[in-house]
Amino acid sequence: MSAPSQARPVRVARRDADAVGRRTAWNALFIAPYMLAFLVLLVVPLGLGMWLSFQDYDMLAGYGGPVGWENYERLLGDRIFLGSVRNTIWFVIISVPAFVGLGLFLALLLNDDSRKSSFFRSIFFGSSVLSVTIVTLVWRLVYMPDRGLLQNIAGMFGLTAPNFMTTEALALPGIAIVTVWWIIGLPMMLFLAALQQIPKEVYEAAALDNASRWRVLVSITLPAIRRTIVLVAVIEVILQFQLFGQANLITNGGPNNASRPIVMFIYEAGFRDWMLGYAAAASQILFVLMLGAAMLQMWIGRQKDGG
């Protein structure tokens, strides 16, 4: 969107082409309030956090001095932390495709102006405005082993519902279902916005050619919204890496640590056990993992772009 800066004469060095008016330090006042918040509440804590991760700082026992890489070394030997990394990655792997797939599916079905579509869109987006605690309260009642909604339904057929809260293999998938139920609205809306950008003429041409719906989908629609698919995937990876509330409130990380994500580990290390250095080190690892995953995805997206 922004024009390249060579449009301006050379004598005004590094002058921004889109700027209006004189280059003066007074203009910095526009960004001053934000920069103050940015520096004090983001840059400083970020630096402090990096510093903390190399310290032995236990809130209750006091400050024990710098320890080099010890916090990181301990993390790599901490079974619960490694488990939380594994859980988080597994959660991203099972939830992101669900978000992309189901979001796209719903968007394709609801991409018109009919009242029916608008009604369904409200339903699928509506749950996104609820706070995580309401969502978990509702779903704990659904999953409740002896008297939950699932068990009530299964009971009608004389079956026993799977117990998502106490079965190791089902805990994370159970949380993934809740999460998809909660915030499928965002990917659906992003896909809808992208679909509406596709010119109608393209489809009309395809209709004349009598192309099957599947062919239209694969050869027209999907390529046209490829960038949005990558965008949604990146957004969801970043969001789902930050899984916390649902796991904390539904399974409390259990059973047997099967659903404890990294953020919950940070929370527990930092705000339950008050080992601030240790928690800060875990935060840095999460940060690096998220950056890595997002960059990998963008790189993959770009590869496809080129091909």
């Binding site: 082993p145 002896d146 008297r147 117990n163 809260m165 106490t166 079965t167």
Partner: peptide
């Protein structure tokens, strides 16, 4: 009992 929560245990 397996997989029972506090309310379920009392109620049960």
């Amino acid at each position: 009992t397996k997989g029972t929560d506090g309310a379920g245990a009392l109620g049960g």
